[in-house]
Design a protein around this nucleic acid. Structure first.
Lengths: 238, 238
DNA sequence: CGGGAGGTTGACAATCGTCAATCAGAGTGG
DNA sequence: CCACTCTGATTGACGATTGTCAACCTCCCG
């Protein structure tokens, strides 16, 4: 479970053992519950063992912006817990299982085992790369492109994590999709229907996405997976 | 010079000495030159010794999005150099002095000296927090608010670095401001003139900004410096 | 069967982009 | 010192994308 960290950096057996030996508390969390709230001083980091969560910020006018979406296996809260004060909230999308790990033990482990520290640092760097792509996404692409891009990103990440094939569950309401892409829920609806009507995706229910035509969807979303910094031997989607 | 890292994490004398002993090559770089291009595999990280630089991405339609702006003292390129492949470009805004440090020596130092490694990791975490704020900025705020927010961020960062007081140089064209805030240069012009006409800022030339009324500007920009994760004893701007 | 959350649709308005022209200032060569 | 040129700033008219408001629908669940 905790081994996703080894994805980029080489970890030996003792590193892995040390990770697995980290003290942690596993908890089932209801859908739509907050794990961390903006302004908190969280004492724990957390790892998604199952389910999905989002990170979001609230601007003063009251609007919400989702800054990232997390799937099973993601280390969600390094960011908030290592910095002292949470600059954003973390919330589950569905009922999820989450492992909480005390902040100090993570820092201590990073200092004792440089390999592990580097792996976590690398994870932070990849996170930052995704953030940069999202800035470009909301800043410089139109609604249709943004939405297609989000669907592509989600598909690739689920695939890499071994959680989906061509069909996948997108556990978000259209309002949440809108908050992630910087538009209104009405426009999100029109946009996603547009993609469906053009034959790029199919939706069995509003939450189940089937990618009809990966090439066209990726092209509509101007999607290039380079920013995810996957391993080079990772198979392409189509 | 290299000591800004000690801002957040405690570094002892030997850590500082090790940082200063890093092999590096100092270079003067012309205005508007690329330090790294998207797609490169850079072998060096760099530190701004003087001047300003930006990081930007280009979307397929050709539009450009600036994802961050860097000032003297910033460690600019940890992101690109540690990840193997640059997902964005780095470009100087003005003639600048830059120290290049080989990627491997940084990684080695981080592993030998956990304190230094943690300090650099922390720097990455703060960078990521700024990215998140920018996602919210371009995703959920209107043009006027975005522009005011950018001006506030720049003012605070320059102030903290000891590089400016109430007046400061904003070494960007309006087209670059537009690329940072996700609008067009025409709209950036109208927006910044709007702020000036409402008495929030004054401009001696188009590059010299004087903040007339910090409270109103911060409020117009919905600016809350928490996301910069400054030290708590950092004095407020006004 | 009723209630509620989320999805869908239409009419209209506001923000912002596009295109194109003009202006201002800095540097350059004669 | 002056014409020339180039880049960036400024402005107006117009159009496109996206937001707002409001209604209605559909499905799920107790």
């Amino acid at each position: 479970m905790l081994r996703k960290l080894g994805y980029w950096a080489p970890l030996d057996k003792t590193d892995e053992a040390a990770l697995l030996a980290l003290p942690h508390k596993i908890q089932e969390i209801d859908a739509h519950s907050y794990i961390v709230r903006e302004g908190d001083r969280p004492a724990h980091s957390c790892l998604m063992l199952s389910g999905y969560s989002i990170r979001h910020k609230t601007v003063m006018s009251g609007a919400r912006q989702i800054v990232s979406i997390h799937i099973t296996g993601d280390l969600v809260d390094l960011q908030n817990s290592l910095l002292r004060r949470a600059d954003h909230s973390v919330q589950t999308l569905v009922r999820s299982k989450v492992a909480f790990i005390p902040r100090e033990t993570i820092i201590a482990l990073a200092q004792e085992r440089p390999n592990v520290g580097f792996a976590m640092w690398y994870d932070t760097l990849v996170d930052a790369s995704v953030f940069r792509e999202w800035i470009a996404n909301v800043g410089r692409r139109d609604a249709r492109t943004r939405m297609a891009h989000l669907l592509c990103e989600f598909a690739v990440r689920l695939r890499v994590a071994g959680l989906a094939d061509d069909d996948y569950e997108l556990p978000m309401t259209q309002e949440q999709l809108a908050d992630a892409t910087g538009m209104t829920s009405v426009h999100a609806n029109r946009t996603i229907r547009g993609l469906e009507q053009d034959g790029l995706i199919q939706r069995a229910t509003s939450r189940m996405i089937h990618i009809e035509n990966w090439k066209d969807l990726a092209s509509a979303g101007e999607f290039d997976r380079a920013y995810l910094h996957l391993r080079e031997n990772e198979p392409a989607l189509d």
